[in-house]
Simulated assay, not measured.
Amino acid sequence: MDIIKEIKGGLIVSCQALEDEPLFGSANMALMARAAKEGHAVAIRANGKDDIQSIINETRLPVIGIVKRNYQNSDMYITPTIVEVDEVFAAGADAVAVDLTNRLRPDRISNSEFIKSIRCNFPKLMIMADISTYEEGIEADSLGVDLIATTLAGYTSYSKQDDYPNYDLIYRLSEKLQTPIVAEGRINNPAEAVRCLQNGAWSVVVGSAITRPQLITKRFTEKIKEFYKSN
């Protein structure tokens, strides 16, 4: 459980690029992770076996691994089945982040069965539960996960939709549970990251605001366009 102590009060950087993005590729993500390390990130969240392995070799930081995979019969896409968990484990990640929302899993097993299967097959792999609501966080805690992340708040059809981090969800879960609550989702600047910590977050995950330059650039260009339209 040393990784939990290592990430307390720190910034975890999500280094991901999908196939249609300019920085796609494990070599690029390894360099992105190195840059994050130089900025004093305490851990990296990474997608896919190749990226995970490259980032571990490059940084030696703790890595929370995921595999994003779409299934036609389910809305889940973050490490939704034991197949993806196996890929994360084989890549050497310290922890696996899994979708633990109330949506139907591709293999139709329950969240309880899923967590039991991970514990049975990969007993040394830490589990981060990606949830979207307070009730899902409570269930994740009851299933004995190691970390609970607010990653999917606002990304399920039934969770609160907002342009900002769900500070209330972070606060309520951290007040209620002993399991560390990791703030993730829609954190766009340092002030928002600090506010998440003030609301009880154990640590903070930031992705797009740091590691997707095309989106960062777009934020600037849109503001510039707004300026010219209003003048």
Rank of each mutant, 00 (worst) to 15 (best):
E58V: 11
E58R: 13
T59S: 12
R60Q: 13
R60C: 13
L61M: 12
L61H: 10
L61V: 13
P62C: 13
P62D: 13
P62V: 14
V63A: 05
V63K: 03
I64A: 02
I64P: 00
G65E: 10
G65I: 07
I66Y: 06
I66M: 07
I66C: 05
I66S: 02
V67E: 08
V67M: 11
K68C: 04
K68D: 03
K68M: 06
K68L: 03
N70T: 00
N70G: 02
N70L: 04
Y71W: 05
Y71Q: 00
Y71P: 03
Y71L: 03
Q72E: 10
Q72R: 03
Q72I: 00
N73S: 04
S74F: 03
S74K: 01
S74H: 00
S74C: 00
D75Q: 10
D75Y: 02
D75L: 01
M76H: 01
Y77I: 09
Y77C: 07
Y77F: 14
I78C: 11
I78Y: 02
I78N: 02
I78T: 11
I78D: 01
T79S: 12
P80D: 09
P80K: 05
T81R: 04
T81E: 11
T81S: 08
T81Q: 10
T81G: 07
I82G: 09
I82H: 11
I82L: 15
I82W: 08
V83I: 15
V83E: 15
E84L: 09
V85F: 04
V85Y: 06
V85C: 00
V85A: 03
D86S: 06
D86F: 01
D86C: 02
D86R: 04
E87G: 02
E87D: 03
E87F: 04
E87C: 07
E87Q: 14
V88P: 02
V88T: 03
V88H: 05
F89W: 10
A90Y: 06
A91M: 06
G92K: 01
G92E: 05
G92R: 05
A93K: 03
A93P: 01
A93N: 01
A93Y: 00
A95C: 09
A95Y: 05
A95K: 00
A95L: 07
A97E: 01
V98N: 04
V98K: 03
D99P: 09
D99I: 06
L100Q: 07
L100D: 06
L100M: 15
L100G: 10
T101A: 11
T101Q: 13
T101F: 15
T101L: 08
N102G: 15
N102M: 12
N102C: 13
N102Y: 11
N102P: 06
N102R: 14
R103H: 13
R103L: 15
R103W: 12
R103C: 14
L104M: 13
L104E: 14
R105I: 15
R105Y: 13
R105E: 12
P106Y: 10
D107A: 12
D107R: 12
R108Q: 14
R108V: 12
R108W: 10
I109V: 15
I109F: 05
I109M: 15
I109R: 09
N111Q: 07
N111R: 08
S112E: 15
S112N: 08
S112G: 09
S112Y: 09
E113D: 13
E113S: 14
F114D: 08
F114M: 11
I115P: 00
I115L: 05
I115K: 02
I115S: 04
K116H: 10
K116W: 08
S117N: 13
S117T: 05
S117D: 14
S117G: 06
I118Q: 12
I118A: 10
I118V: 14
